[in-house]
Amino acid sequence: MPNSFSVSGSRQEGISVLALDGFLDAHTAPAFEEAIEKEVSAGHNRIVVDCARLAYISSAGLGVFMTFIEEVREAGGDIKICAVIPKVGQVFEILGFNSLFEIVGDIPQAVARFAHSRAEGG
């Protein structure tokens, strides 16, 4: 059962938005990892992951978030998660992602949170 998964990237107000679509599991996690890697190596450390079309996430998918979070935070950025469907949200919650990541309702909110934290910082 090969699950379909895709990542599409875009830039909004200097922030990278990665939209996930489909099933994020051990087989598809490398694609997501590659996408974040590309952003980070390009110096884009402020990343919003749009989970509106993410239908399923496994532990391997969660591991991708964990791989990069400290690196981007040390570089002054962050990974924010938005538009999570309830089923995926439950997985995040079980694992305790809520205490590690900022999870918000939609992309504008996430972008606004970046602006907010920059204003706070500045």
Binding site: I94, G96, L100
Partner: peptide
Amino acid sequence: LAAKGLGLGMTGGPLFARAT
């Protein structure tokens, strides 16, 4: 029964202790 908690090996000591 779901006590609040965080996965093992995801983050350093203090945050883990607070979250679990």
